[in-house]
Nucleic acid binder design. Structure first.
Length: 535
RNA sequence: GCGUCCGUAGUUCAAUCGGAUAGAGCAACAGGCUUCGAACCUGUAAGUUGGGGGUUCGAGUCCCUCCGGGCGCACCA
């Protein structure tokens, strides 16, 4: 990587100036403004105190040392602003990028080994089996699935998992709600389920079945279909009931007792989560003898470590108070705090007809994931979900997604991919074959559009790394949109198959198109969005 | 009240673990197809990054404080 070569050169040069070792804050990065060069380093700024020198003066000294024996591709060096040293590179460095994309290919380019095979269990969606998935669940589905794809590309071994709370009062209430509707009555209390789907399902429900069991299976079928429609697949659907029957609850409780973290008070059994930073202790077993939801959850999480060295829970904002107690419980069971990670996703607000649609399974109105996916398709839905950070609340206006379908950002990216394949088809029609890459004269690629495309491709590895480290799929979304923009600009200004294009240039551009295809396909794949050859 | 996530162009959002002149889409306005797909391209306009203070060579980003919003604060799940 050019970046590492430049940093090594900076390190050597700073050593000759008496600064050794180089502080880790010293980086080689891309200036936000291209006029500042291709790469720059903040070494002089970071080291000014160590070296006891004015940063501009130190920067000048650094530039002088580097100029005496320039790193590869470096054409010129200058010092700018408060003391940045800027590198201007010959476009040969971008030809190396093109070669890397082509030789490493769709499978290898931007594939990293951050994880070194570490297993990561990612739990997401985990909706109660009491109704259809609403559009808010769609966000966790799109996010979790994309995160798993990014983790896999970075050398982790992800395991996508979802949890079914098929045990407890909410299932009973579902059954009672269905039974009441079937009998033509209102559900008995406000804590029962009111949605339109209850009435529909009550009509479907055969006589003589257990309403609770039947309703839960009905809800699960519905959820499975919705997730399939979104193209989200799980490695494991974990059942709370099965987990408890397997003894996970008891074994966790026993180990917590053995560790001395459990005590009795007011007739209830408590876990001393305050030992691990929670703000109050938590009840494991109520005074009536029933376990709270927390205890089976602890047993389940403990069991998840069989399927991952690191556990990630993707949770809605309404669960953020849950994180401290779960982390505390897992620490009490001997797990390091960094082996449990909770990602708190903020809420989704859906707009339709200019008004907010309330997302509640118990209220009468809701929008199901299936409705959204049916209306706009899985690609539009997923791309929309992954357009922004999970840390911010999101507003999705269904009317906008539908009305602007043709101008939707996902089509902008997919169109770029389809154009690539269109070029391939046209080339085949005209009998134009690509000659082997090692016979190409890359020096013909001098157009700013071509170079910009290569610059964008060069940033994929660091973008993937950043998206993985920050658990931030939206960085991939942004990147692939920028790549599509670079490709569309190139396509517009740089003819490839036209008869007036010189053969050497045509060949180089065909390989650049192939590199673009690889980049677009990787980006879309990491988002779980289809990369169509025709639209 | 306590905790937590936010507040960036008319709007929806970006912004490389603190970098230089804060960028895109949509909407608005003005242009661009006789050779490959116009679902595209080019340009114009649009900002006191909620207010104030601090740390730093450098703050949208970190700290404090105030304002505004979401979500929590059960022997519910």
């Amino acid at each position: 990587m050019i970046r590492d070569e430049l940093l090594d050169a900076v390190r050597d040069a700073m050593a000759t100036l008496g600064v050794e070792p180089l502080p880790p804050a010293v980086v080689v990065e891309r200036p936000a403004n291209r006029e500042h060069g291709d790469w720059s380093t903040n070494a002089a700024l970071v080291c000014q105190k160590i070296a006891a020198r004015n940063p501009r003066e130190l920067g000048q000294a650094l530039a002088d040392v580097l100029s005496a024996d320039p790193p590869p591709h470096v054409e010129s060096l200058d010092i700018a602003g408060p003391g940045f040293v800027n590198f201007r590179l010959a476009s040969t460095w971008l030809y190396d990028v093109l070669a890397a994309v082509i030789t490493e290919g769709q499978d290898g380019y931007g594939r990293l080994d951050l994880g070194q095979g570490k297993r990561v269990n990612v739990e997401f969606v985990s909706a109660n089996p009491t109704g259809p998935l609403h559009a808010g669940h769609g966000r966790w589905a799109a996010y979790g699935d994309s995160l798993c794809r990014i983790l896999a590309r970075c050398g982790y071994v992800p395991h996508a998992e979802t949890y079914i709370n098929d045990r407890g009062v909410q299932i009973q209430r579902l059954g009672e709600s269905l039974a009441a509707r079937k009998a033509g009555q209102e559900p008995p209390t406000e804590d029962h389920y009111m949605g339109d789907y209850i009435a529909e399902w009550a009509q479907e429900m055969p006589d003589g079945v257990d309403p609770a069991e039947w309703g839960m299976q009905r809800a699960l079928d519905d959820q499975r279909q919705a997730l399939a429609a979104m193209h989200v697949a799980f490695d494991t659907w974990s059942s709370e009931r099965a987990s408890v029957e397997a003894g996970h609850l008891e074994s966790a409780l026993q180990r917590l007792r053995d560790g001395g973290f459990v005590y009795e008070q007011d007739g209830a059994t408590w876990l001393r989560t305050t030992d691990f930073g929670d703000d109050k202790d938590r009840v494991l077993i109520k005074s009536d003898g029933d376990a709270t939801y927390l205890l089976p959850d602890i047993g389940y999480h403990e069991n998840k470590y069989e399927r991952g060295d690191l556990i990630i829970d993707v949770l809605g904002a309404d669960h953020h108070g849950y994180v401290a107690r779960m982390r505390a419980a897992l620490q009490a069971l001997g797990h390091a705090p960094e082996d449990y990670e909770a990602i708190i996703g903020q809420n989704v607000t859906l707009m339709r007809d200019g008004a907010e649609v309330r997302l509640s399974k118990r209220a009468g109105t809701m929008i199901e994931v299936r409705d959204l996916v049916d209306e706009v398709g899985p690609d539009v839905a997923r791309f929309a979900y992954l357009l922004q950070s999970i840390d911010t609340s999101q507003t999705i206006d269904i009317d906008v997604l539908k009305a602007e379908a043709s101008e939707n950002p996902v089509y902008y990216v997919q169109y770029a991919h389809a154009r690539v394949h269109s070029i391939g088809r046209m080339a085949a029609e005209r009998g134009i074959d690509r000659v082997p890459f090692d016979q190409i004269d890359l020096g013909t690629l001098v157009h700013e559009r071509e170079l910009e495309l290569l610059r964008q491709l060069s940033t994929l590895p660091e973008t993937v790394e950043s998206a993985c480290r920050d658990r931030a799929p939206q960085k991939i979304t942004t990147w692939v949109r920028e790549l599509a923009a670079a490709f569309h600009g190139f396509y517009r200004d740089c003819p490839i198959l036209r008869t007036d294009v010189a053969p050497e240039l045509q060949q180089a551009r065909l390989w650049l198109v192939e590199a673009s295809r690889i980049g677009l396909a990787i980006g879309l794949d990491l988002l779980g969005v289809d990369a169509p050859e025709e639209m």
